[in-house]
Amino acid sequence: MEQMFDLVSLGELLIDFTPAGISPQQNPLYEQNPGGGAANMAVAAARYGLRCAFIGKVGDDFFGHFLKETLQQVPVDTSGLILSRSHKTTLAFVKLQPNGERDFSFYRKEGADVMLQKDEVDFSLIDRARALHFSSLTMTNAWSKEATLAAAHRAKLGGKLVTYDANWRPLLWESEAQCRASMLEGLRHCDIAKLSREELCYLTGEEHTEPGAKKLLTMGPRVLLVSHGEKGSRCYWEEGRIDVPPCPARAVDGTGAGDCFFGNAVAALLQHDFSIQKIDPQLLREALTYASKAAAYCVERKGAIPAMPTPADLAQV
């Protein structure tokens, strides 16, 4: 019998080079960390206890093999991961600010993650899953955009829960117009979307989240999770809103914290048979409260995937 999955995540899997001190010659040192928003999402949900699979592409190089092995150790199923001999694994260099916030420099032109083609997607993984996750970052290239939207369409036709991360990275787009249009297109293919307050304001032109959220809820998603960083998060749906306070944390590295938050929120909802057709506010609140605790754990540690907690980890803090 073929394995069934709770969540399949499609998108970017890459190397984050994160600051790791200064060399004896006084040069910055960087540590090789596994990352990528879609992969982080799968790992967060798998660490929660869900059965997860990943669809994407990395280079057939030592970075790509390291990333594949990292997912398998979690474990996340990698039968949908392509090892490309034509394209290299994408790299991202992270600069950390004193408060844990980050700036990124991407080495991604024709990187493997954005060269995923529609005919390389294992749609049977989506058919055997309860939910599909994707983000805007695989829509920066025409081929991977086609593959991403085809996957989202397949999931929708199959009655799967579809989750989406807007994940605004302006430097990865050819133009501001392409960036905004594609990010909005992703919203039209999902049930639950996660955005930062800045992303919501950018997409709607609204200065405040309330009117912006109302606009986006007319475009496709039934639920919006809006992160406010140190101020916590808000959840919007047609009939209501929930405010979730932040968990106190001494931020060291914010890399992957948003993915950790979203992955744990979705995992908690799936664990309790959340229905997008009949939204349970109490279940939403409990899931987001747990996710907030998970994100606080993540920011207190370096790296993205290495910092994703299990329920046992959170029980000890």
Rank of each mutant, 00 (worst) to 15 (best):
G254P: 13
Q25V: 12
G64K: 06
K194T: 08
T70Y: 01
E176N: 06
G205A: 15
S23V: 12
L116F: 14
H133V: 03
L283F: 09
C179H: 07
Q277M: 09
L216Y: 03
A294V: 05
I242R: 15
H65F: 03
R197V: 13
Q72E: 14
A46N: 02
A249C: 03
Q72G: 12
Y297S: 00
L288A: 07
R130I: 03
E300P: 15
K160G: 07
L116V: 12
F63Q: 11
E101I: 10
L125R: 00
Q73F: 12
N40H: 11
A267S: 12
S124M: 04
E239F: 06
H133M: 01
S84N: 13
Q73L: 14
L157Y: 00
L132N: 00
V252I: 08
N141L: 02
L132D: 00
R234K: 10
G21V: 13
S182L: 08
Y236G: 14
Q73H: 15
L184C: 05
A112I: 10
D60L: 04
Y297W: 08
D113F: 12
Y297E: 00
L225W: 00
L195T: 08
S144Q: 10
C52P: 06
I15G: 01
Q32F: 10
C260A: 02
V114E: 03
P170R: 09
L132C: 00
D273N: 06
M115H: 09
S124N: 08
G258Y: 11
Y202D: 05
N33D: 02
P248F: 09
G303C: 05
I305F: 08
F54G: 09
